[in-house]
């Protein structure tokens, strides 16, 4: 599971360098996200621009990470490919997870909002 993180403005930006977030990778994804989000940053942006396939287990892993961050640290998504975004729309999880077109937009908005 290839993830790497950087701080941009006040956001912890985590890039998922995998082509899929699925049942086979969900547990490792959650474990790695737990390690990386130990960094104290008020916002966490997950860059999914390399991910072309998301299944319900991958979606479940995203929600788990969101819950583990707690109410005070938001998880936001950036760079969703069309079929990944479609899974969020079909399940209506786009109504509870904030989605940005890309990382630049996400960190720019975060600075404005924060």
């Amino acid at each position: 599971m290839n993830l790497y993180a950087e701080i941009i403005n006040d956001a912890l930006v985590i890039h998922l360098a995998e082509d899929r977030l699925d049942a086979a990778g969900a547990i490792r994804f959650k474990d790695r996200m737990r390690e990386l989000t130990e960094q104290p940053a008020p916002h966490v942006v997950l860059d999914l621009s390399q991910v072309t396939f998301l299944d319900s287990s991958g979606l479940g892993a995203l929600v788990s990470v969101m819950k583990e961050l707690g109410p005070r640290r938001r998880l936001e998504l950036a760079g969703l490919r069309p079929h990944v975004e479609k899974v969020l729309h079909l399940t209506r999880m786009n109504t509870v997870i904030r989605i940005h077109p890309d990382v630049d937009h996400a960190v720019g908005r975060l600075r404005d909002v924060g």
Binding site: L59, V63, S64, L90, M93, V96
Partner: peptide, 21 residues
């Protein structure tokens, strides 16, 4: 019915997606 997004469900969407697609 499919899970309610407001409950932050971390599962239960599988069969909903199958039936939908």
């Amino acid at each position: 019915p499919p899970p309610d997004p407001g409950d932050l469900p971390d599962g239960g969407f599988g069969w909903f997606l199958i039936r939908d697609l």
